[in-house]
């Protein structure tokens, strides 16, 4: 059986560090495990603080990532 994946949107400097506006990630138990996978897969992210959003809300480390949700990596905002 094919392992399930999610598509993750990357913004700002994070899109440069991960090499594109989107990336594919395996499903993880929660945001904490997902972050660990990200930092291992994209070591360039270690130097940048960022939030993970799930369905347009900032997620905490304990949050689960429901199937079909929209996940994004958000570096510190700098609008205005």
């Amino acid at each position: 059986m094919e392992a399930k994946e999610i598509t993750v949107l990357c913004f700002g400097v994070l899109a440069e560090k991960t090499g594109g506006a989107t990336l594919k990630a395996p499903i993880h138990e929660n945001v904490c495990k997902f972050r660990q996978w990200l930092l291992h897969t994209y070591p360039g992210l270690n130097s940048i603080s960022f939030n993970v959003s799930i369905n347009y809300k900032i997620a905490s480390n304990e949050d689960t990532i429901p199937e079909g949700s929209e996940v994004a990596l958000l570096p510190p905002y700098s609008g205005g």
Partner: peptide
Amino acid sequence: KTELPVWG
């Protein structure tokens, strides 16, 4: 400035 997801 702190809550709108915009990057410059």
